[in-house]
C-alpha cells in the first residue's frame, strides 16, 4: 500500500469531519505561571468582595448595549421568507449568520430578535421557551435575547414553536419603550403604538400592524401537505436511513433526484395551504371589521397579519376589544426610511 492511497482515502472521508474543522481559530498558548497567579488573585479578590458585600446571587443580570453586536444595515435585519420553518426548528437569518461568520471572538454577544411563526402569544413563547434559555433577554419588552454563537447553537425548541433568529437593530434610544397595554380582550398594544396614540389627534391616521389570532394546527397542515405531495412519513424515514447508508457520491445523486424533489413538493403544498388559509383569514378579517376600504401596505400570505393599515385612534381602540386581534403595533417601514421614503 502506498502513502498516496492512504492520503486519497483521507480525502474521501465524510463531509462532517471536513466541516468540523473548516475554521480553526488560532489559540494563544497559555503561560501557566502568570495564569495561576492571576487565578489566585481573582479568588482572593472574589472572597474579599463576597465578604464585604454579602453574596451577589440573586441580582438581576444586565447587559451593556455598547458591548453587544447589533445589526448595522438593512440587509442584516431584512426578514426573508420564513414560511417554511417547521415547528420544532430554529432558522438563523442570513444577516445573523453573516454576523456569526464575521466574528473572531467566541465571547461576542449578539442582539437577536426572536420571531415566532406558529402564531403563539408572546407570553406563551416567553413562558415555554425564552425563560429557560439561560441567556440574558429582554423578550417581553423588546422581543430580543442576547447570546453568544455557542449559546445559540445549543438552543433547542419544542414542536410547539417555529422560531426565527434575526440580528436585531439597536433601539434608537436605550431607555425602555412606553409600557405595553393589554386590553381585557387579550389584545396587546405595544408601547410604541401606545406612545403614538397618546400624541395623535382624533382624526390622524396611524400606520399599524395587526396580528390576528388563528387556530391553525401546523401538524395537520404538514400532514395534508405531505398527502397532497404524495410523500408519506415512512418515505421520509427511508430517505433519512438511506443518507446514512449511501456513499457521498451516491448520496448526492439520491439527494438531488429523490429527497430534494420530495421536500420541494411538500414545501410547495405547505406554502399553498397556509397561503390560502391566511389570505382567507386576513381578507375575512378586513371584511368582518369593516376595514376593507382602509389603506394598507400589504396583507400577508405567510402570517395572519396585516401590515401598515392606516387607522384612527377610535378604530384602533375598537379593534383592541376584538378577541380576533392578538396584538397591534406601530408600523415603521424601515426600508422606506432607509431609501429616503
Amino acid at each position: 500500500m502506498t502513502g498516496k492511497l492512504i492520503l486519497d482515502a483521507v480525502g474521501g472521508i465524510s463531509d462532517r469531519y471536513i466541516m468540523e474543522f473548516v475554521d480553526v481559530t488560532q489559540k494563544k498558548r497559555i503561560n501557566w505561571k502568570p495564569a495561576a497567579l492571576a487565578a489566585c488573585l481573582c479568588l482572593a479578590l472574589t472572597a474579599v468582595l463576597l465578604w464585604s458585600n454579602g453574596t451577589r446571587r440573586g441580582t438581576t443580570p444586565t447587559i451593556a448595549y455598547e458591548d453587544v453586536i447589533w445589526g448595522e444595515n438593512i440587509e442584516d435585519m431584512e426578514a426573508s421568507n420564513y414560511g417554511d420553518v417547521k415547528p420544532g426548528h430554529i432558522c438563523i437569518s442570513e444577516g445573523l449568520q453573516n454576523a456569526f461568520d464575521r466574528s473572531n471572538d467566541a465571547r461576542d454577544v449578539f442582539a437577536i430578535r426572536v420571531i415566532e411563526l406558529t402564531g403563539a402569544s408572546e407570553e406563551q413563547v416567553y413562558e415555554e421557551f425564552i425563560k429557560d434559555l439561560g441567556v440574558y433577554e429582554e423578550y417581553l419588552s423588546r422581543g430580543m435575547i442576547f447570546a453568544t454563537q455557542e449559546q445559540v447553537r445549543e438552543i433547542l425548541v419544542s414542536d410547539r414553536f417555529a422560531i426565527v433568529f434575526e440580528l436585531a437593530s439597536k433601539p434608537s434610544d436605550t431607555t425602555p419603550v412606553g409600557a405595553d397595554y393589554v386590553f381585557p380582550s387579550g389584545c396587546k398594544i405595544y408601547g410604541n403604538l401606545v406612545d403614538k396614540l397618546a400624541e395623535a389627534t382624533d382624526d390622524e391616521l396611524l400606520p399599524v400592524v395587526i396580528r390576528i389570532r388563528d387556530n391553525v394546527d401546523l401538524a395537520t397542515v404538514e400532514e395534508l401537505a405531505m398527502e397532497r405531495a404524495g410523500v408519506s412519513a415512512e418515505d421520509l424515514l427511508f430517505y433519512e436511513n438511506q443518507t446514512r447508508i449511501l456513499s457521498d457520491a451516491e448520496n448526492l445523486v439520491f439527494q438531488r433526484d429523490v429527497v430534494m424533489p420530495a421536500y420541494d413538493r411538500i414545501r410547495h403544498e405547505r406554502v399553498t395551504i397556509l397561503g390560502e388559509y391566511y389570505q382567507q383569514l386576513n381578507e375575512g378579517f378586513l371584511v368582518n371589521t369593516g376595514l376593507s376600504d382602509a389603506q394598507y401596505e400589504s396583507v400577508s400570505t405567510l402570517l395572519p397579519c396585516i401590515l401598515g393599515i392606516r387607522l384612527t385612534k377610535g378604530q384602533i381602540y375598537q379593534l383592541a376589544s376584538d378577541p380576533q386581534v392578538s396584538w397591534m403595533d406601530y408600523y415603521e417601514d424601515s426600508a422606506a426610511e432607509d431609501l429616503g421614503g
Binding site: L5, I6, D8, A9, V10, G11, G12, I13, S14, S247
Partner: peptide, 8 residues
C-alpha cells in the same frame, strides 16, 4: 479507497 475511508 472507499473502504479505507470508512476505516479512517
Amino acid at each position: 479507497a472507499k473502504l479505507l475511508s470508512g476505516y479512517i
